[in-house]
C-alpha cells in the first residue's frame, strides 16, 4: 500500500470522528429541546414521588446543569463505553443496540444483496434492450416502486401475502407464544421473508434504474463499437467490456446507498413489528428514551459512514485511472 493511500484512509477516519462529534451534538441538542422530560419518562406520569425527591434525582442526573456541561457529561461516559440505560427495555443501551442490530443487520444484508444482484441483472438487460418491451415494463414498475412510500409497500405485501393468501406470518421475528429457546432457524427465516421482500422491493428500483442508465452510457461508448468491429459477439462484449465497466460504479452506489437502506429498514420493521433497530427507535421515541435514541443516532451514523467509506476506497483500489501509482495492479 502506498503512502498516499494510507494518507487517504487516515483522512477518511478523521472525517468519521468529526462526523460522529457533529451527529452527537446535533442529536443531543434536538433531544434536549424536545418537549420530553427525562425525569417524567423515567418515573412515570403517575408517580407519587415528592417534589423534593424529584429535585434530588434531577440534581443527581445533572439535569439542571447548563447544556454544554450536560453534553460533556454524556460524551464522557460514551467515550468510556457507557451509553446509559434504556428506559424502555430496562437494559444498558449498548446491549439493546447489539441484539437489535443483529436482527436488523440480517434483514438489511439480505435485502441489500438481493436488491443489488437482482437489480443489477435487470438493469443490465434493460440497458441492452433499451426501448424494448421488457425494458419498458421494468422501467414502469421501477418508477411506481420509487414513488411509493415504504410503509405502503410493506402494508401491501402484508395484506396480500399474510392476510389474503395466509402464506406468511403477520409480523415479528418468531412465532408468538413460543419460548425463545424453542425458536428454530426455520421459524426465523419464515418470519424474515416478508420484511426482506419489502425492503428488497423498496431498494431495487434505484439499483435497476442506475444500472440501466450506466449501461446505456457504456454501450454507446466508442470502445464498444471497436469491440464490435473486432468481431466480438454481443455476449463477448457484455462479458469482456460491459460488466467490467459497469461493476465498479454499481457496487460503489450499492455501498453509498446504506442510508436509504437504513431508512427503509426502519419503516419496514415497524410495519412487520420486527424486533430490530427500526422498531427500537420508534419505541425509544414514544417513551422519551433519551439514552437509547442518542445511542441509535450514533450507531446509525457509523453504519452509513462505513458504507460511504467502502464506496470511496473501492474506487481508489479498483479503478486503474484513480490509482496513484502507474502499473501497480
Amino acid at each position: 500500500m502506498s503512502m498516499k493511500k494510507g494518507k487517504k484512509i487516515l483522512s477518511e477516519c478523521i472525517r468519521m470522528v468529526l462526523l460522529l462529534v457533529a451527529v452527537s451534538i446535533v442529536a443531543f441538542i434536538l433531544i434536549t429541546k424536545a418537549p420530553i422530560d427525562p425525569l417524567v419518562s423515567y418515573i412515570g406520569t403517575n408517580s407519587t414521588l415528592s417534589t423534593e425527591a424529584k429535585q434530588e434525582i434531577a440534581q443527581y442526573w445533572g439535569l439542571n446543569d447548563p447544556l454544554p456541561q450536560r453534553f460533556l457529561t454524556w460524551a464522557g461516559h460514551v467515550l468510556k463505553g457507557d451509553f446509559g440505560t434504556s428506559i424502555t427495555y430496562k437494559k444498558p443501551v449498548i446491549e439493546v443496540i447489539k441484539s437489535r442490530f443483529l436482527y436488523s443487520g440480517i434483514l438489511m444484508l439480505l435485502a441489500w444483496v438481493l436488491s443489488g444482484v437482482l437489480g443489477f441483472v435487470l438493469g443490465v438487460i434493460c440497458g441492452l434492450r433499451q426501448g424494448g418491451i421488457f425494458d419498458r415494463i421494468i422501467k414502469l414498475i421501477c418508477f411506481i416502486l420509487k414513488s411509493a412510500p415504504t410503509f405502503w409497500i410493506g402494508i401491501l405485501v402484508l395484506t396480500v401475502f399474510s392476510v389474503q393468501l395466509g402464506w406468511f406470518p403477520i409480523g415479528m421475528a418468531a412465532p408468538a407464544g413460543k419460548l425463545a429457546a424453542d425458536v428454530t432457524i426455520g421459524d426465523r427465516i419464515y418470519h424474515l421473508i416478508l420484511p426482506v421482500l419489502t425492503l428488497t422491493v423498496v431498494n431495487i428500483s434505484e439499483v435497476v434504474l442506475y444500472t440501466r442508465q450506466k449501461m446505456i452510457e457504456i454501450i454507446n461508448q466508442d470502445f464498444i463499437l471497436y469491440a464490435k468491429a473486432r468481431g466480438e459477439s454481443l455476449w463477448q462484449i457484455v462479458r469482456r467490456h460491459v460488466l467490467r465497466n459497469i461493476a465498479l460504479p454499481a457496487i460503489t452506489v450499492q455501498f453509498a446507498s446504506f442510508s436509504e437502506l437504513f431508512g427503509g429498514m426502519a419503516l419496514a420493521e415497524n410495519v412487520f413489528a420486527y424486533p430490530g433497530i427500526g422498531t427500537a427507535t420508534t419505541a425509544a421515541a414514544m417513551n422519551a428514551d433519551v439514552p437509547l435514541l442518542l445511542g441509535i443516532a450514533l450507531f446509525s451514523a457509523i453504519f452509513v459512514f462505513i458504507g460511504n467509506l467502502i464506496a470511496n476506497i473501492l474506487y481508489g483500489i479498483f479503478d486503474p485511472r484513480t490509482r496513484e501509482e502507474a502499473g501497480d495492479a
Partner: peptide, 8 residues
C-alpha cells in the same frame, strides 16, 4: 485511444 476499453 478512446476506442480501447479504459479498464482492460
Amino acid at each position: 485511444v478512446d476506442y480501447l476499453d479504459p479498464l482492460m
